[in-house]
Amino acid sequence: MKKYKCPICGYIYDEEKEGIKFEDLPDDWKCPLCGAPKNIFKAEAIEIEINEENDKNLREMNLGEISALCSSLARGCEKQYLDEEAKLFMTLANYYNNKAQEQGDFSTIIEKINKDLNSNYKKASEIASEKKDRGALRVIGWGEKVTMILKSLIDNGIPTDKKVYVCDVCGFVYVGDEKPEICPVCKVPNFKLLEVKRGA
């Protein structure tokens, strides 16, 4: 299916909507808006493909996504010292997090991690470079590194006699008893590397 554009007024004849191919219209057919003749219409260069990727992009956010966005906004409020707003966003984040459900095991997680490392981060990085979006390049760089750490933790396990810290800024995981001075990924001072306790 193609679209044809009137070069005079910009009217677009959409074959899909109209149900009749443009070339099947009578020769004396005229632009319904400005009356321009059929033979000066031009086919639109780009056919709109509805591929899986586009479709996915347009669909609604799922419950897990809503939860993550709410907790992100909660942090934004926290940074501005808007305590009440932060709490309200967290209420929403927790509500949607409890409703979200997905079933699987570590091998399913590894599959997704591999896809992130082999494809998702690379594609995002290319576009972010092209658009000169340095903020996006930052989040991509940090996230990719943390993802690699998570993969190695799943592959190798966490030694039971070591402490574990998670960077509260970027998600970097440090396994060991003495925290590094700064987070090796985002460089924040180590008071933001928070210990995660076993059990409970």
């Binding site: 993550a68 966005l69 907790s71 992100s72 906004l73 942090r75 934004g76 570590f106 997680i109 979006d133 903020g135 996006a136 930052r138 989040v139 940090w142 996230g143 943390v146 993802t147 750490i149 998570l150 933790l153 799943i154 396990g157 966490i158 574990v164 998670v166 960077c167 509260d168 800024v169 970027c170 998600g171 970097f172 995981v173 995660v196 076993r198 059990g199």
Partner: peptide, 21 residues
């Protein structure tokens, strides 16, 4: 469970950052 807890936490932090950008 502990490993999963770490993965869940780290992913949430990554996600919050992704939304900011």
């Amino acid at each position: 469970k502990f490993l999963a807890k770490i993965i869940s936490k780290a992913n949430r932090l990554i996600l919050e950052d992704l939304y900011r950008e």
